[in-house]
């Protein structure tokens, strides 16, 4: 328990340090980018731009801006106002977009894990059969096909040819199905391949042979003695996979008109929405860090040999 707490505290410290570094780099990059958040087709006069800058505390020396903004984030968690979505603060933008992205990610991941692990286990147990071959071929395709192509195919198939899902939008379970499928499919394919490889390796281990020799049923051996060992690579893949699912939803958000967080990332950067861009980068940093920490924890839980450090 001590080691666990110590681990979490250390990780938290590292996260703060990383956040600070990420903040600094993005601050510098934003300052270096050409263009201004206040430029519009109908040019604003320098005097008005000056006032707008003062209002958002963008008029002082760069170092002052750097420390003021950092102080606001650190003490009050206040990420400032979005400059382009004027009616919203950055915190509100994240608060509205995050649940959508998270909910989509949960469905995509759960779908990917269930499908991927089952396919991997079946492939490994019946290796060399047609079932194995077809599933692994599908998996290769699943990894290779980019999700926007998959989305177009899925829409063609399940919206127009067999109309069971709505074309786009957000708000009902049926509307989540297609995007979650498209987002989860490549992950599922990857998990299937990892599971199969892990299973095949474990099946040849001595403790598995012993288990079979003891006369345990095939099913018990596979589920209790083979699968946990085979899961290690899958678990370590889940960290980056979660990150990929959260950030990779951007194209799907456009295709399926989902109000998630991904697109804000691009818009904030291209429209010089200083605060929103920083806010998004920091949010993603926290998410990635948390996911990686959870993966490391899970590792220690599954494999007794792993120590938390």
């Amino acid at each position: 328990m001590r080691s666990l707490l110590g681990f979490l505290v250390r990780r938290f410290g590292w996260m703060l340090l990383t956040l600070w570094a990420v903040y600094t780099v993005s601050f510098i990059l934003i300052k270096l980018a050409p263009g201004s958040p206040f430029s519009a087709e109908r040019a604003v006069t320098p005097a008005i731009e000056q006032q707008l800058r003062a209002r958002f505390n963008l008029d002082g020396p760069a170092l002052q801006q750097y420390t003021d903004y950092l102080w606001n984030i650190f003490t009050r968690g206040d990420l400032g106002w979005s400059l382009k979505l004027e009616d919203y603060s950055v915190n509100q933008v994240i608060a509205e977009g995050f649940p959508v992205s998270a909910s989509l990610a949960v469905f995509a991941l759960v779908f990917a894990i269930i499908l991927g692990v089952s396919a991997g286990v079946i492939s490994a147990v019946y290796r060399g059969t047609m079932a194995d071959l077809s599933m692994m071929t599908t998996a290769v395709l699943g990894i290779a096909i980019p999700n926007f192509v998959l989305a177009s195919l899925a829409i063609l198939l399940f919206v127009f040819m067999i109309p069971i899902f709505p074309a786009a939008g957000w708000g009902t379970l049926r509307q989540v199905a297609l995007p979650a499928f498209c987002l989860g499919a490549p992950v599922a394919a990857y998990i299937a391949r990892l599971t199969r490889a892990g299973m095949l390796e474990s099946l040849n281990r001595e403790h598995v042979r012993t288990a079979f020799a003891k006369g345990l049923s095939h099913r018990t051996v596979v589920l209790k003695h083979v699968l946990p060992g085979a899961m290690l690579p899958v678990v370590s893949y889940l960290g980056p996979a979660t990150a990929g699912v959260l950030t990779g939803s951007l194209v799907l958000e456009k295709i399926f008109a989902l109000p998630g967080m991904g697109s804000h990332f691009i818009y904030a950067a291209t429209q010089r929405d200083t605060f929103l861009a920083t806010g998004m980068v920091l949010t993603y940093t926290v998410l990635l860090f948390t996911m990686n920490t959870l993966v490391d924890l899970a590792y220690a839980v599954i494999d007794p040999r792993v120590e938390l450090e």
Binding site: I155, V159, F160, A167, A168, G169, K254, I255, A257
Partner: peptide, 18 residues
Amino acid sequence: AMSIEGQNTALNMYTTGQ
């Protein structure tokens, strides 16, 4: 007033009655 930017998305939604 739906915030939909994708041109194809909008047409798909129109075709399917959304």
